[in-house]
Every structure is written in C-alpha cells, then in structure tokens.
C-alpha cells in the first residue's frame, strides 16, 4: 500500500495558531496519554526515572526566538506533529507497505503489524514527525487520532483529536482542508496559513497561522494617533481642580 492515493476524498488536518499558542505542552502530554493506550503499541519511555529519560512522543513543542532589527526579539512556541502530507515521502519509501495514506481522509498511518522498524520513513520525513519506539521497534507517528474522530463510543463533540480537545488556549483546530467552507480552511485563508518547508514538495496538509504583527515597535511614530487622549487638562493641582469642578458639573 505504499503508493499514495491519487487523491483523497477529504484532507483532514490541523491548523495551529502560533499567535495563540502559549507553549504549555498540554497537547504534547494529552497526545502521549491518549496514544500510549490506544492505537498500536504503547509509547515507551526509556530511562523513565534515570539520567536522561527519552520517550516516544508524537507531538512536540519547540520554542524559538526571532530577532530582526528595529524590533524586540520575539518568542514563538511551535508545536509539531505529522502534517499528513499529500505527497508524503514517508509513505513511498516504506518497503513493507506499513506506511500508508488513507484514501478516504488523507490520514497517514503506520500499520504496526507490518512495520519492520527500518527507520527509512523517519529519514524521509522532513519534519521529524515519526519516531521509532525503542521498546516495540515499530515506527510511531501522529494518527490524527483516527481512533477518536470517528469513534461512536464517545460523545460526538469529543470526536476530535486529543490534542485539539485539550488545548487550553484554543490554538489548535481540526478539520477538512478539502472543504473550503470548513473552519480550518477559512482560518488558514484569513490568516495566511503557512505550509512548512514548501521546498521539500511534500504538500503538507497542516497549516500554521503566523503570529500577528507585534506593536512593540521601537519606532514610536504611532503615538500621534492617540496623543489627543492625553492632551493635558492641567499640570498643577490648582488647574486640575478647576477642570474637576467643570467636569463634575457635567455628571
């Protein structure tokens, strides 16, 4: 099943709003929690209580700093999981057919029963979205919570990925990018959703909303706009009382 479907009926994915993400790692742990006891083998933790613990995670949050002249440096929290690429190189390199992209919704999955743990798909992914589980020896990746989003055993409103449901800031959105009317399509269009590393030609489905421009510019010419609000009515108590008297009359 390693060939990619020519097209998929739906294109499910995430919009991650970098203007809203506070970097709390809630999505990281919720993802870990859900996926360690649902789809596939558990996500192991090596050296869990030891020197350098190292576990399998399907979603990780990086923190970057951006600096350009004339502005204060800026901090950006950057969650990253599988982008469910349309031209997913991780799928086509897979020798066993374990990796595949679902025809009906575009979700990229690993069929763990077939996986030999060769790592090649992880090498092929530009985004670091695949991790080999050190205990089970199979490749793990974001499933877009395929076992939640259609799950008839959970309430309808909960049929969204674990990370989206948990995000306290509401920075994560889930939906169908094939539908131009969906929330994710609208958000992405309105806010200039970014595809990561377009030069890799993977056509990621997930989109990142860039931080809105900051107003802490070093150039203070903006102040004029609001200056009238601070036109002094008085600089001394005497004058101030005069103003006060008049102002009180109007109340």
């Amino acid at each position: 099943m390693t060939t990619l479907p020519k097209s998929t009926t739906r294109k499910l994915g995430l919009v991650i709003d970098l203007d809203t993400c506070v970097g709390c790692h809630a999505c990281v742990i919720s993802c870990k929690e859900w996926n360690t006891s649902n789809y596939g083998v558990p996500l192991s933790d090596i050296n869990a209580y030891g020197a350098e613990p190292s576990g399998t995670f399907l979603n990780r949050v990086h923190t970057y700093e951006a600096k350009s002249t004339g502005c204060n440096a800026q901090t950006v929290h950057f969650p990253k999981s599988c982008l469910h690429c349309e031209d997913a190189p991780c799928v086509t390199v897979c020798p066993t057919g374990a990796s595949y992209k679902r025809q009906e919704d575009g979700i990229v999955l690993v069929n763990e029963d077939r996986c030999i743990g060769c790592s090649l798909c992880a090498w092929a992914c530009p985004y670091g979205a695949r991790e080999m589980d050190a205990v089970a020896g199979v490749m793990k990746k974001c499933t877009l919570c395929v076992d939640r989003i259609y799950n008839e055993n959970i309430p309808e409103e909960d049929r969204i990925p674990a990370c989206v449901r948990t995000c306290p800031a509401g920075a994560r959105h889930f939906g169908d990018f094939a539908d131009p009317e969906s929330e994710v399509s609208i958000l992405s269009a309105a806010r200039g959703g970014i595809a990561l590393m377009p030069e890799q030609d993977t056509k990621p489905v997930n989109r990142y909303l860039p931080p809105r421009p900051k107003t802490d510019v070093t150039d203070e010419s903006k102040i004029d706009i609001l200056a009238p609000f601070l036109a002094p009515i008085a600089t001394e108590t005497g004058g101030f009382l005069g103003w006060l008297d008049k102002a009180l009359e109007k109340i």
Binding site: L18, A66, Q74, V76, A122, A134
Partner: peptide, 27 residues
Amino acid sequence: TATGLGHLGKMRLLESPHSSPNYLMRE
C-alpha cells in the same frame, strides 16, 4: 523555511521540546 517564520527575522532555538535527546536527535 522550516518554521515559515522568516518574516519575523533570524530564528534560533530557545528551548528544545524535551530536555534530553530524543530518537530524532540521536538518529
């Protein structure tokens, strides 16, 4: 390009997602 945030200026990593190396870094 990796973050799509070049318009914000020069980027650098401030904090790794996890404080110990992971599979990706090792591999």
